[in-house]
């Protein structure tokens, strides 16, 4: 068994670091998809079966907030767990996201252990 993960971040560097992190964190990783913003993420979701979305919030074109909103009204996507990884520190905005259904939140900078724990907690295995 392995999880297909969609990584959404506008920074190529962050995506590369996160990819390495996921490998170090010993997550059973299936396919890994990446997207540079919310819009690209929705394009990936349309074509690919994704088990977990890890997304940044502040991105050009379509933000993580907008992505989360779009996912949670969608019949198929609303069940996909979302973890937000961001520098955003405002607790009200984070609480707002959690109310909407975002399952996990990790503050940047993060350690592989934090990511691993969060994924294990969210995926419930």
């Amino acid at each position: 068994m392995a999880y297909n993960v969609l990584l959404v971040d506008d920074s190529v560097t962050v995506r590369a670091v996160m990819t390495k992190t996921l490998k170090i964190a010993q997550i059973p990783l299936g396919e890994l998809f990446t997207a540079g913003n919310g819009k690209e993420a929705l394009d990936v979701l349309k074509e690919k079966w994704v088990d977990l979305v890890i997304t940044d919030l502040n991105m050009p074109e379509m933000t993580g907030f907008e992505l989360v909103d779009a996912m949670f009204v969608h019949e198929q996507y609303k069940a996909i767990p979302v973890i937000v990884v961001t520098t955003e520190g405002s607790t009200t905005r984070i609480d707002d996201l959690k109310k909407k259904g975002v399952r996990g939140y990790v503050r940047k900078p993060f350690t592989p252990e934090q990511i691993g724990e969060m994924i294990t907690q969210v995926m419930g295995a």
């Binding site: 690919k48 079966w49 198929q76 069940a79 995926m123 295995a125």
Partner: peptide, 16 residues
């Protein structure tokens, strides 16, 4: 448990 069958079914019908 974990992912319920209905969610799985909806996604299966969409992708495969």
């Amino acid at each position: 448990p974990r992912m319920d069958g209905l969610t799985f079914l909806r996604r299966l019908m969409h992708y495969f």
